[in-house]
Each structure stands twice: as structure tokens, then as C-alpha cells.
Computed example of a mutant assay.
Amino acid sequence: MPFSNMFRAAWSSEERLDGKTVVITGANTGIGKETAIDLSKRGARVIIACRDMEKAKAAVKEIIESSGNDNVLCKKLDLSDTKSIREFAEGINQDEAKLNILINNAGVMVCPYGKTADGFEMQIGVNHLGHFLLTYLLLDLIKKSAPARIVTVSSLAHSWGSIYLDDINSEKSYDKSKAYSQSKLANVLFTRSLAKRLEGTGVTTYSLHPGVVQTDLFRHLNGPQRCFMKVVSPFTKNSVQGAQTTIYCAVEPKLANETGGYYSDCAPTSPSRKAKNDELAQKLWDLSCNMLSITWD
């Protein structure tokens, strides 16, 4: 965390979200679920978008019990399959009158090499391309619901990332940590590009580092990485603490006039130099559209 943020008082807000609709991807566990509980407590209608419907239904029950708000539901979304993303978005566009907050939270981390249903490397496919397509498909409804926000959970790992434009799917060589960092850098660049395209629409965008959070994303770490996590565990966050910056970006009234920025510990912070490269952001945008066969000017 930035040194200046270490002594900042914990952020909290009484902001209400009555009458607002929120979609959160991957919210059946970890920081996504804690975000869903918090936004439900604020009175929002919360839709959690998950791959495993059994786990999702159990999470819905828990969110309703914790928040006292029964306006919570789950819908099936597999971000590793564009067909599933299109079906999910079609359902939201059909059934929901508005979408005020989209939280691109789901992700996979340092997993063994695998490909999505569409042949993308799993980490870039789920973490970036899946959310890129989802946002594209829901954007008309989000614009119609303005003022609205799009929040994408990135990571400090973006700082070590590079975008391999000529080998985005890691087919020439695969390093799971590099592929993860690439996908997280893509999240920050996407948010930056999206902000420019949404100027004047009343829709604002944010990317963030949640902190080093103890979640089941760590399941693919190797022996030395697990040892390291044990050593630093006293300085890591639990899921409630890890959700705070996401919630801050989703509800803080002062952010209504900010867009395209990167946040950590409930405060704006500077991302890496590559994350501020507009030329790289544009090239990634064009490549993403091409890979997904969409036209998004």
C-alpha cells in the first residue's frame, strides 16, 4: 500500500443505494460476496453473476441473511465462454429496467495453462476479455441508467505486467505469473480507455487494487509462493477489508466527477507507467475487439 495510505482513517459511508441495481461478477465467495452484502445493506437490488449455480444460491441465501435485503438474486455467467456471456447479458437487458453499477470482480489467478471455450488463454480470457465483452453488451442499459459506474477489480500485480500484443494468449511461452500480471494491466488500461469513450454520458469508470487478500484465488500458488504468503499473512486483508476499495469506488459520492482512475486503500493512487500508456491502451482495445469479433468505437 502507498505509505501515505497507511495512516488514513478507515473509509466508511452511510450512502444509500435504494432503487439502484447492481451486477457483481464472481460474487459467491471472497471480496465479491462481501461487496454484495455491503451493497445489499445499502438497499440495492443485487444480482450476483456466477459460474457455479449451487454455490451462487448458497451465497444468495447468506447475502440476504446478512443484509436483511431479500432483493438479491443469482444468474449464471461463465466468463470463460462468450456464449454464456452473451446469454447472461441478454437476460439482464431483457429483465432489468436499469443497471446503475457494474462490478467486474471475478477472476482467475496464476492458474496452470488452459484455454477458454473460445481458445483464449484462461487468465486474459476471463479477467480481461470476458469482462470487456460483458461491459460492451450491457453498456446501453448502463448509459440509460446514468449516473452509473463501472468498477473493475485489478491488482497491484499490474505493475509487473506487460501486454504481449503479438502473443496475448501466451502460445509461444507460458509463465502463469506473467499471464496474470498481463490480465491485471489489461484491466487498468481498459478502465482508462473506457473513461475516454464515456465522457459526457454520466457513466464513470474505476479500477482498483483490493490489497493482498486471503482468498481461494491463492489455490494455484506454488510451494515458495505459499511460504511467502504465510510470512506476509499478518499484513494481508480478510475479505471484508479487501472489499472496501471496491465498495468505495461503487458508492463514494465524491467520485461522481472522477473517471478512469486507479484506486487502492479507498484512495486514488498512481498505477504503473505502462498503465498510463494511451497508445498501448488503444492497441489493446483494438486487439480485444478483433478477438471478440465486435465493433466498439
Rank of each mutant, 00 (worst) to 15 (best):
G30H: 06
A157K: 07
L165E: 07
E54L: 03
A267V: 01
A275G: 14
A59D: 09
N104K: 04
G32Q: 08
V22G: 13
L133Y: 01
S13E: 05
V232W: 00
M291K: 15
L221Q: 04
R219M: 03
S183V: 11
Y113M: 13
Q244S: 11
T201H: 05
N187C: 07
G242I: 04
T245K: 04
N28K: 09
L189Y: 02
G242V: 03
K115F: 01
N222D: 12
I150N: 13
V23N: 09
I294V: 14
L99I: 12
Q94D: 13
T215A: 08
N69V: 04
P147G: 12
R42Q: 08
V108M: 07
G91Q: 11
L77D: 05
S40I: 08
R8H: 06
R16H: 06
D81C: 08
A56S: 15
A195L: 02
V231L: 09
L133E: 06
L39A: 13
R51K: 13
S4L: 06
K274A: 10
I294E: 06
T135K: 14
M109K: 03
V188D: 04
M291W: 02
N5A: 12
T269L: 01
R42K: 11
T245V: 05
N28L: 03
V212S: 14
N93Y: 01
N71P: 04
I142C: 09
K283Q: 14
G30C: 06
K276Y: 00
E87K: 14
A89L: 06
G107P: 07
V153T: 15
L217M: 14
L129C: 10
G19H: 03
L73V: 15
V22A: 12
Y180I: 14
V231C: 09
A146I: 07
N222H: 02
S173A: 12
L185W: 02
A250L: 02
I64S: 09
R8F: 02
S40T: 08
V60I: 13
T29D: 11
E171G: 10
D265I: 00
I64L: 05
N5M: 04
A10Y: 01
K57F: 00
F190A: 15
D167V: 06
Q123S: 10
D286L: 07
Q282M: 10
F3P: 15
L156A: 09
A281T: 13
N187A: 10
A44K: 05
I103Q: 11
D166A: 07
V72E: 05
V232H: 00
D166G: 09
K76M: 05
L129H: 04
I31E: 04
L73P: 07
L185R: 07
G223F: 02
L217N: 10
T82S: 13
M291P: 06
A250F: 01
L133H: 06
F88S: 15
K176P: 13
E279Y: 03
A146W: 00
Y262Q: 14
S13D: 07
L79P: 07
A148C: 07
S154R: 06
S293Y: 00
Q244R: 13
K20V: 03
L137G: 15
